[in-house]
Amino acid sequence: MKARAFAYARPRTLEAAHAAFADAEGDASYISGGQSLVPALAMRLQAPACLVDLGGIDALKGIAFDDGVLRIGALTRHAQALSDPLIARHAPLLTAAAPFVAHPAIRNRGTLGGSVALADPASEFPAMMLTMDATMEIFGTDGLRDVPAADYFQDLYQTAIEPGEILVALKIPGAAPGTRIAFEELARRRGDYAMVGSGIMAQVDDGAVAQIAIGFFSVGATPVRARAVEALLTGRALDAAAITEAQAALDDDLDPPDDTQVPAAMRRHLARVVLGRLLTRIAGTPGEAP
């Protein structure tokens, strides 16, 4: 199980990376943490002629909060999502999701940018980008551009990133004071891809839902926002009746795939269970002031 031979470049700038990619005439892959790419190379499922390592590009590093937006450099490791105080404060959903991402050693190497660029529909971080209404900052031929999450995830492993473009940063609106969050996934073993998972962030004012965002993963070809459920709950008190209605409404938001291990009907059921549990937690947990 050895990768096919490839050339390797480790540029220092976005422009140089872009040029290295272009030199390979499209037969290149960017590598960031490599925790999904290297197995694919080892199994020869992918075999680019050139591997362009983004690991040496300073422009992809750093975490900063400015003007209400948390900007997370693409090279930020999963482990930093667990430990970084800025992330914990302004994007607590990421911190809540991070322990569920694979295993400690994978988290030490895998990057948030790599995960969001790959856009595995079973992954936690891409779905949380969608939930948090993050904006993806992408470097391309014409320089930097911003793509909102709603437009970013397009199909199975397909995003708004064009060939040769580089995901530079994840820009997340800072969580408002009092935001309640909850995250859960159902996996057969710790660190496995979930059968179903979800993260919720909500504002609850005077007992009623002022704002709510509900994102699911492992329910389709892309991360999914439960927008019908969000609409149903907005303005409602999060009581048992509302939660039951929300679970019933969830079917309209999901179109899960069928597979032998988790048939579509089971996935829908599990999604309802997860939604019910998360909403119960949201209803019961007073927000922590960020």
């Binding site: 159902l186 057969r188 059968m195 291990q261 988790v262 048939p263 009907a265 089971m266 829908r268 059921h269």
Partner: peptide, 13 residues
């Protein structure tokens, strides 16, 4: 005894 088989046995889906 997978989750799917357990839920099947319970008639969940």
């Amino acid at each position: 005894m997978t989750p799917a088989r357990i839920l099947k046995a319970l008639g969940t889906f």
